[in-house]
Write a protein that binds this DNA or RNA. Structure first.
Length: 279
DNA sequence: CCCCAGGTCGTCA
DNA sequence: TGACGACATGGG
């Protein structure tokens, strides 16, 4: 039988907002307010209870470490939030709405594929497409007597054609997916190299691939590589920055973020996104 | 039939 | 460099 792992929550942790805010796409909300999430090589069920996280998984190996790492539970967000509010008083109510919010550390390959699909798309559709790809090419996992499918790795997608991707409703992004999957399988692109690169180098590398522009590259570096000095400015962030700060132009927003949010600009922008999109 | 969604590409000046 | 239309798909 499956063992239960319990993790005591030391700092604030808002499981619901962290999971549902649009960082990740492969989860389901359960009736008991817990979540079932597919991450890396396993499926977990997680819920909050009496200041503890209760976790079940189909795979116990390193489960505690993997969950703590995935939800970034050891990072001091109090300090980050203090830094953000230091030069910008207007962001304080936004930060308060994001209390307990963590930046999830995702699989690099899954993040790249998901965020190429995210271009000019909405969260619901992205979720549907990413799940379809997983169901067709990912490893099947049984958990709680239900079938789940892991996100496929690059080798699993080696022979998937543009037409195949089109049939999975990726739209015009199909050729971009095929192209970068080929680069990874041929070894011209090694996703692990990016961990050792600085932000500018890694941005330049990523945007050299078709389908990855500055916004998608920023999301990849934020969500998979924990580079916080990027600017994932999407339509929602543009809206809130125009309403609250009277900043229309993307470059003006960047300028403001560099000046006021320093090395944590991406987290500030993520807070803005969350505050605006999730009302 | 319109507009919009975690934008990017190619083209033209 | 900067502006601008096209691009697949689904929902409001």
């Amino acid at each position: 039988m499956i063992n239960i792992i319990k993790i005591i929550i030391k700092n604030n942790f808002n499981l619901k907002d962290t999971v549902t805010c649009g960082q990740i796409f492969r989860f389901t909300k359960e009736e008991d307010n817990g979540f079932t999430i597919i991450l890396f090589d396993r499926v977990i069920n997680i819920k909050e209870e009496n200041n503890e996280l209760i976790i079940l998984s189909n795979k116990e190996e390193n489960l505690r470490e993997i969950v703590i790492n995935y939800f970034d539970l050891d990072r001091n967000y109090e300090l980050i939030n203090k830094t953000l509010s230091k030069y910008d008083k207007k962001i304080i109510p936004i930060i308060e709405k994001c209390d307990g919010f963590k930046m999830i550390k995702q699989s690099s390959f899954e993040t790249i594929i998901s965020y190429i699909i995210s271009a000019n798309n909405n969260v619901r559709t992205i979720t549907k497409v990413v799940n379809t790809i997983s169901e067709n090419y990912g490893e099947k996992v049984i958990f709680n007597n239900k079938e789940y499918y892991l996100f496929p790795n690059a080798k699993d997608l080696k022979n998937v054609s543009i037409e195949d991707f089109r049939n999975m409703k990726t739209g015009f992004r199909a050729e971009y997916l095929v192209s970068i999957i080929k680069a990874i399988n041929e070894g011209t692109l090694d996703l692990n190299d990016i961990y050792n690169m600085n932000t500018e180098e890694s941005l330049n590398l990523l945007i050299s691939y078709k389908g990855i522009g500055i916004k998608v590259a920023s999301c990849i570096l934020l969500f998979a590589y924990q580079k916080f000095d990027v600017f994932p400015i999407d339509t929602w962030v543009k809206k809130i920055m125009e309403e609250e700060y009277n900043l229309k132009d993307v470059n003006k927003i960047k300028e403001y973020a560099i000046k006021n949010y320093k090395e944590y600009s991406a987290i500030a922008i993520q807070y803005m996104y969350h505050a605006k999109r999730n009302k």
